[in-house]
Amino acid sequence: DESNKPILLPNESQSFERSVQLLDQIPSYDTHKIAVLYVGEGQSNSELAILSNEHGSYRYTEFLTGLGRLIELKDCQPDKVYLGGLDVCGEDGQFTYCWHDDIMQAVFHIATLMPTKDVDKHRCDKKRHLGNDFVSIVYNDSGEDFKLGTIKGQFNFVHVIVTPLDYECNLVSLQCRKDMEGLVDTSVAKIVSDRNLPFVARQMALHANMASQVHHSRSNPTDIYPSKWIARLRHIKRLRQRICEEAAYSNPSLPLVHPPSHSKAPAQTPAEPTPGYEVGQRKRLISSVEDFTE
């Protein structure tokens, strides 16, 4: 099969070098950035008060330690540790928490760990991170309901609301924008112990962030949302095809390698009803078989 044979790379090609550099910018793992907010007593309706908090309760602090690993920003190499735009020179604080497994990295933009500057009256330095995160974990210690939209931002799609209760338990629920209701189930609340709260809140936030990324990708319907490693695979396959075309153009005697095509017509299947918005969006999480067989 010609399409699977190794090909020689061009010795000097600026377009090839640019493509390789672009490939280096696509990590081999999925990345997520999640905002974390603490809401104190009497702050449920005040964005400024929430963003001005420099610490929270003892249970909130224990919750943070379970979310991930504490890292010092100045020691991080952005090409190895995903920071979601946090500055490593102290502009966004000294520490944050991050978490990773074999296929993804997540960083938490924690408002109480970011510096509260006197010259920044409206807390814009914090909002440029927190307001651009799709998902926020809100530790609501106010005793009042927290409403979506209290923290203004164009991309605040989903809130994971943590409400501490007695007996070391917590109520965990989801809020989302109306255009996200087909992807996020907000109907079920959970009672979770303090011990298990970081794991549950983190998983709910990661799932909500993946759904938000799919939702946000609708602005470019021709580019369905893939995982990062599938995006790398697609980029490599496009690069291979372009090299083959350039080689055939410079030397017409060489065969032009095309991806294999299936001449056999697909079997006719009964027509199915058109899937609704929710089903269609969830299918976009699934990769096409052509990603692996071309």
Rank of each mutant, 00 (worst) to 15 (best):
L148C: 15
H235M: 14
D125E: 08
K80F: 05
L73V: 10
S187I: 02
V162N: 01
A248C: 10
V188C: 12
V188R: 05
V279R: 13
P226T: 08
V279F: 12
E246N: 09
K152I: 05
P259T: 13
C89L: 05
V107M: 05
F134T: 02
D120T: 10
L73E: 14
Y58T: 07
I137C: 00
S44C: 08
T150C: 07
K121L: 13
Q203V: 09
P260S: 14
Y38H: 00
L70R: 07
P226H: 04
C76W: 07
A49C: 04
P164Q: 00
Q281M: 09
K264T: 15
Y60Q: 00
E144V: 10
Q175C: 06
C169N: 05
F292E: 15
L285G: 12
S19H: 15
G84E: 14
S187V: 03
D75T: 10
Q203L: 11
L171D: 02
L64C: 09
G68H: 04
M210S: 01
I191L: 07
Q25W: 06
G276M: 11
D30P: 03
E41D: 06
G56Y: 02
T163W: 02
R218H: 09
S288Q: 11
P259F: 11
K147R: 10
S136D: 01
I224T: 12
H216S: 06
V39P: 00
V138L: 02
P266D: 10
N220C: 08
R242Q: 15
D166R: 01
E91I: 08
G153L: 08
L165S: 02
P273V: 13
G182M: 08
A35Y: 02
Q21F: 07
D87E: 07
Y139V: 01
K5T: 15
I50D: 02
S28N: 13
V135E: 00
E246S: 07
H129V: 10
H122T: 14
N220D: 08
A271K: 10
R123L: 14
V81H: 13
E2C: 10
R195E: 11
R128H: 07
F108I: 01
P275E: 14
D101L: 00
E17Q: 13
S263K: 07
L285R: 10
R202F: 04
N4E: 15
T61E: 07
S212C: 15
R123P: 15
S28I: 12
R284A: 11
D87M: 02
C244S: 10
L8R: 07
P252G: 08
I110T: 04
L174W: 02
L174C: 09
P260K: 13
Q77Y: 09
D166I: 01
L51G: 03
L23M: 05
S136Y: 04
G182R: 12
S263Y: 06
S173A: 08
L233A: 10
R242T: 15
Y38M: 00
Q43L: 01
N45I: 02
V160W: 01
H100G: 14
Q25F: 05
G143M: 03
E168D: 07
H32I: 15
C124P: 10
R232Q: 13
S219K: 10
H159D: 15
P27E: 14
E54I: 04
P10H: 11
Q21R: 05
G40A: 12
Q281N: 13
D1W: 14
D185Y: 03
I71Q: 09
I243H: 11
P226S: 05
A205R: 00
I230N: 12
N170E: 00
S261F: 06
I230Q: 09
K228M: 04
L8S: 14
Y225L: 13
T31R: 09
N156A: 06
A111N: 03
I26M: 15
E245K: 07
K5C: 15
L51S: 03
R242P: 12
P164H: 00
T65I: 06
G40M: 02
L73F: 07
Q14G: 08
F63C: 00
L206F: 07
P275S: 09
P252M: 12
R218L: 13
K74C: 08
E272G: 13
F16D: 08
R69C: 14
R238Y: 14
S227L: 13
R18M: 08
A201E: 00
C169E: 09
R282S: 14
T116Q: 07
C76T: 08
R284M: 06
I151K: 01
V107R: 07
H159P: 00
E41K: 05
F16W: 13
K264V: 12
F108T: 01
S173E: 14
S46P: 02
Q43W: 01
S57V: 00
C244E: 13
L233E: 13
K264S: 14
R128K: 11
K178N: 09
T293V: 04
P6V: 07
L51I: 06
T116K: 12
S57M: 01
V119Y: 12
K147M: 08
K283Q: 12
K152H: 08
V81T: 10
A205T: 01
V107Q: 13
C169F: 09
I50C: 03
T150M: 04
T112R: 02
L23Y: 06
T65W: 07
C169T: 10
Y29C: 06
L285E: 13
D75L: 07
A201Y: 00
T269L: 11
G56Q: 02
P226N: 06
K178C: 12
P273K: 10
N209D: 10
Y167K: 02
R240D: 14
P221C: 04
T222E: 13
D141N: 08
A201M: 01
V36G: 00
F199R: 02
D1Q: 10
P27M: 03
V135W: 00
S217P: 03
N45Y: 03
E91P: 05
F146H: 02
R18G: 10
C176D: 00
A267I: 11
S136H: 06
P255Y: 07
T269W: 12
V192F: 02
R218N: 10
L67Q: 00
G66Q: 03
F108S: 01
P270I: 10
K147G: 05
P115N: 05
N156D: 08
P10Y: 06
R59S: 01
L183I: 11
S227I: 15
S173H: 11
D118V: 11
A231C: 10
L171V: 13
F63V: 00
K190T: 12
I137H: 00
C244R: 07
V200Q: 02
D30K: 03
P6H: 06
C176F: 03
D118G: 10
R238V: 12
L64M: 07
V214G: 02
E72L: 06
R284F: 08
M210D: 01
A247Q: 08
D87T: 04
S250N: 13
I151E: 03
A208F: 03
G131N: 15
N196I: 01
S142F: 01
S261C: 10
H122Q: 12
E54Y: 03
F155D: 08
R69S: 15
P255W: 05
S288V: 07
T31M: 08
H207Y: 08
I110N: 02
N132F: 07
E246F: 05
S288A: 14
Y29I: 15
Q241E: 14
L83D: 15
L130T: 08
F63I: 00
Q14S: 06
Q268H: 10
Y225A: 11
L183C: 13
R242H: 14
Q268K: 09
